[in-house]
């Protein structure tokens, strides 16, 4: 399904390096993936694996040290002129992980939601601005009267919906959702996920979903990339990845998903991935396609093994 759709975002050989004096830390290396219009693409990995860094590199919060990020064929990393910068901001928006930290406690909801609108003068009169804010609040299930409230008066789920309203009022084409539900209570996670799906249905939004929980990712995404220590190790469509998890890290992630059945949970064997032994000199690993649309980071001997598994 993905092939006949238009590419909205291309990430090519992306590398992000953090410098602290002379020390350098490579957070992300050789990241390659494309986002097609209207799909939900998930980045999955443990904490510290660099998934948030990729999201932030696309938003240009983290500078990139190598590679390219193309949005609709136009390079958006590195230095940008003012016009492109504003064009990117209008098209790519983000929902943050921590709803408590990502809202300005000293501003009213009205100010927070309309911040982007006023930066881009996306209204003709103050009444129109207020109407847009009210519409955005209603679209996330909040009430008009909330506009004059302050963030500390809301619950975690409500705050996260305010964060979504703030991003969606800009009418973006691409939404980067950085673990939008991991800070929320389990009982309201579905509410926020369904809200994202609703927006996708209504506006054809493309979502880059960053998460560490495979059970959530399975529910929401069309394609999944598994990332380990700054490197994408496997990428496939959701169905394919859950049917044929090839890379040992993917298998260990899958084994960590909790089962709501005590019998299965008790007898479940947890797979622990200890990292790949390096024999890069004789047989270097590279980014290869096992099946159409199913990519894996492997060397030649591993590829033979994987191919056998798939054909079985």
């Amino acid at each position: 399904m993905a092939e006949n759709k238009e590419k909205i975002l291309e990430v090519k050989n992306l590398e992000v390096t953090f410098k602290n004096g002379k020390k350098e830390f490579v957070a992300v290396q050789d990241a390659n993936f494309d986002l097609y219009e209207g799909e939900t693409f998930s980045l999955v990995g443990e904490s510290g694996s660099g998934k948030t860094t990729i999201g932030r590199a696309i938003l240009r919060i983290n500078p990139t040290s190598k590679g390219e990020i193309l949005y609709k064929g136009k390079k958006i990393n590195g230095k940008l002129d003012k016009e492109t910068d504003r064009w990117v901001i209008r098209n790519i928006q983000m929902v943050f992980q921590d709803p408590a930290a990502s809202l300005n406690e000293r501003a009213t909801i009205d100010y927070i939601v309309s911040e982007g609108l006023s930066n881009f003068h996306m209204y003709h009169s103050d009444a129109e601005r207020h109407q847009k804010v009210v519409d955005a609040l209603k679209s996330v299930g909040l009430l008009e009267e909330h506009a004059s409230r302050y963030p500390h008066e809301f619950s975690g789920g409500q705050r996260q919906r305010i964060g979504i309203a703030r991003a969606m009022v800009m009418e973006p084409k691409l939404l980067i959702a950085d673990e939008p539900i991991s800070a929320l209570d389990v009982s309201i996670r579905a509410q926020v996920l369904n809200l994202l799906k609703k927006f996708q249905r209504e506006t054809g939004l493309t979502i880059l979903f960053i998460a560490h929980d495979l059970s959530v990712v399975r529910y929401i995404s069309d394609r999944i990339a598994v990332i380990h220590k700054g490197r994408i190790v496997e990428m496939a469509s959701t169905q394919e990845l859950f049917k044929n998890p090839l890379h040992p890290y993917t298998q260990s992630l899958l084994s960590a998903v909790p089962m709501p059945d005590p019998q299965i949970e008790k007898n479940k064997k947890l797979l622990i991935y200890s990292g790949m032994e390096e024999d890069s000199k004789t047989d270097p690993r590279s980014w290869q396609e096992v099946l159409p649309g199913h990519y894996i980071y492997a060397n030649e001997s591993e590829m033979v093994e994987y191919r056998n598994k798939v054909t079985l």
């Binding site: 910068d85 504003r86 209008r90 992980q97 406690e105 911040e115 982007g116 964060g163 703030r166």
Partner: peptide, 20 residues
């Protein structure tokens, strides 16, 4: 984080200082 959020919305530094 809320200052990052403001930056993602294209808020200029002077406005961030004044409001955030």
């Amino acid at each position: 984080e809320y200052n990052l959020a403001s930056r993602c919305l294209g808020t200029p530094t002077s406005k961030i200082i004044l409001h955030n």
